[in-house]
Design a protein around this nucleic acid. Structure first.
Lengths: 133, 133
DNA sequence: TCGCCATGACTACAGGTGTAATCACAAGAG
DNA sequence: CTCTTGTGATTACACCTGTAGTCATGGCGA
């Protein structure tokens, strides 16, 4: 179940784009927010208008990645797919595409290009110890 | 120089798309190929026509990711950016976007979601030993 | 009651991407 | 010398993405 299973991401296969992902992060951070609230979180940093956020939220709902729960006049938006699933899917895609599916190769690459600090290495080492127990 | 430096990818900042990447892989595998040769490698697997490959090659040249060396009537295409640079850039993007720039977090995630096989773990362990020496 | 405002739905639109057909043209076959 | 054929250049076009404006409508303050 490594390179195969495409539509595994909990929601329907629909891919989430980068802009949409930014919105998802806000929803993951705190579910049940209105469009305006989400905007407060991202509009500043990304230079977006409220309209943009609304569009992205709609698209996320369409894609089955977020839920819109009616609350009087407006909607409260919540994530429908778990962050872990998304992150896992994206990671796997990268590993499959660039490292022939070998996660170890990715780690090796990060290490070789010095993308890993000494702290990183220590952390990973600790992690490995834990995993082996 | 971790989260900052955008246009680091050797070639100009122009992003390489997934379809283009498939072509780059062929060029990395063996430089100085004609469009037809590249097609032989990818057209079957991706279900592309020669025309598609030509378009992608042109775009890669435009983006400064590949070079077209005239050879009589045709061109021999070669990669201009190193695979390592590309892979590194993509990996970094992922780590920055999904793991707050912490490569260790990525490894942790892979481990937790069991994306790492026992072999992977052993390999990584060996790697770490080597790095510490 | 009446108009304003917040809000989602719908529409817009430029630029990127995937995929390809068509055009022009030069080298080689006959 | 002419016709075919391989080749890059040009053009095409639908769909996706980022970004946003407009519209209709219902609730709320005056």
């Amino acid at each position: 179940m490594t390179t195969s299973d495409e539509a595994s991401q909990t929601g329907p296969g629909e891919r989430i784009t980068e802009a949409e992902h930014a919105v998802m992060e806000v929803l993951w951070d705190r579910p049940r927010q209105t469009a305006a609230e989400v905007c407060e979180d991202v509009c500043a940093t990304r230079g977006w208008s409220l309209a943009t956020v609304k569009t992205l939220l709609s698209r996320l709902v369409q894609k089955g990645a977020a839920a819109a729960e009616p609350d009087g006049r407006r909607f409260l938006y919540s994530p429908l797919i778990a962050r872990e699933d998304y992150v896992g899917g994206e990671s796997r895609r990268l590993v499959d595409r660039l490292f022939g599916g070998s996660a170890a190769s990715l780690v090796a690459h990060l290490a070789e290009t010095e993308a890993l600090t000494a702290d990183d290495l220590a952390e990973i080492e600790a992690l490995l110890k834990e995993l082996k127990s």
